[in-house]
Amino acid sequence: MAFDYSQYIRGGKLPHIWCPGCTYGIIFKSILRAVDSLKLPKDDIAMVSGIGCASRLPGYVDFNTLHTTHGRALPFATGIKMAKPDKHVLVVSGDGDATAIGGNHFIHACRRNIDLTVLVFNNYIYGMTGGQYSPATPTGHMAATMPYGNVDSPFDIPALAKGAGASFVARGTAFHATALDKLIVDAIQHKGLSVVEIINACPTTHGRRNKFKSPTDMLLWMKDTFMPVAAFEKLPPEKTAGKFPMGVLYRKEGVPEYCKTYYGLVERLKKQGEGRA
């Protein structure tokens, strides 16, 4: 039987706002399949986003949803998670939202290792505003605000997350959608800050300026460019040029999780108080 997405989608809210050829719909479905496979009650999930194309996703899903200000999804989510540590808090953010305006929040959420699942939709561009370059745009790529080619250098988002202290870091792509389901499942199940960089395509504002003839070309580029991390690591260095690993790139168990540490303190103070009384 085909998967019934409608049980997770709010009635009357589709069609979505994303352009033809945009890959966000693929990720949207992958998230719903992942949530379903974990049998998480909808009442126990909050989905929080900032501003941008990816950040419109929470409006369509039947969870507790919060569409906030540009770059700030993580601190909003931190407030929710700290107040309700037993609930599942998913954060949806774009590359600009998460790593430019929200870059400070991103590194500090990683550092705290608070149990949030952060899905970074990387389409290499500011799509909603019309294709300005982002901190993920490859050097040399054309963008509305880099009309002569990008002279800036991009972030390696998984490396950034790992370096800042995230205890689970993965990368998936819109092309490898079924593999993505598993990465999102693992990220939600991981107790700590999980980052999944999800490679996406924006044919409208990025692809057409950068010699991708069609949305399909962008998906085929993902197919040719991203390879499972185990296979990638077996390649001799001279063959890794232009290739990127995907899958679980980093996972460390046993790193103190922020809510757990904080509420451990609360318990300790409570016992001390009882001892005094």
Binding site: D43, T65, L66
Partner: peptide
Amino acid sequence: FFEGYRYHVT
């Protein structure tokens, strides 16, 4: 949030 009302805040 989490009381069963599942609404959207934007």
